[in-house]
Simulated assay, not measured.
Amino acid sequence: MIVEARYERIHAALMLAATSCALGQSVVLFGMGAGVAAFCARWEGLEDGTHADWRTAAGVAGLDDLRTALLEMDATLMVCDSGLKTMGLSAGALAEGVGVVGLPTFLDRAGAARMAVF
């Protein structure tokens, strides 16, 4: 679950999710509130992205690469409908493959899975 729009938090969440997928685990990512920024095609609302170039120069996967990899590995990416509204965004702002659902749908989909909050 991603609830903040800070670059470092989103990067950590996507790294953990991509690593989990690569190890064969099922991954569901859900954005609430400001965390919706992690699922926007153009990263609307992303805070403090100053380290993006630094990571890329160091050969570390960036946010776009990580999100693309997650979608290619069949991770489920969803945002909360109320979070999208709160951020003043429409579903059209989201990256391809991101669903808009309510919190009950996320909880049902996640089931008894281990959860990390970023």
Rank of each mutant, 00 (worst) to 15 (best):
A75Y: 07
A110V: 02
R55C: 03
A112M: 14
W54M: 11
R6K: 15
L94E: 01
E47R: 06
T50H: 11
I2D: 05
V98H: 03
D81L: 09
L89A: 03
R42Q: 12
V98L: 06
R114C: 09
R42H: 10
G49N: 06
M73N: 08
A61D: 08
L63E: 04
A18C: 13
A41E: 04
A93G: 07
F106Q: 00
W54D: 09
L66H: 07
G62A: 07
A112P: 04
A12R: 01
V101A: 06
M15Y: 03
V100D: 00
M15N: 12
G35S: 15
A91R: 13
A91I: 04
T19M: 14
E47A: 01
G59P: 00
V36N: 01
F39A: 01
V100T: 04
F118L: 06
A13G: 13
M115H: 15
A41D: 04
V28N: 14
T105I: 04
L29S: 11
A110C: 10
R114W: 12
C21Y: 08
H11T: 12
A57S: 10
A5M: 01
A95W: 00
F118M: 07
W43P: 04
D53C: 01
G97D: 03
L66T: 03
A75M: 01
R67F: 11
Q25P: 11
I2V: 14
E4W: 13
S90A: 08
L77A: 08
G88H: 06
L94R: 05
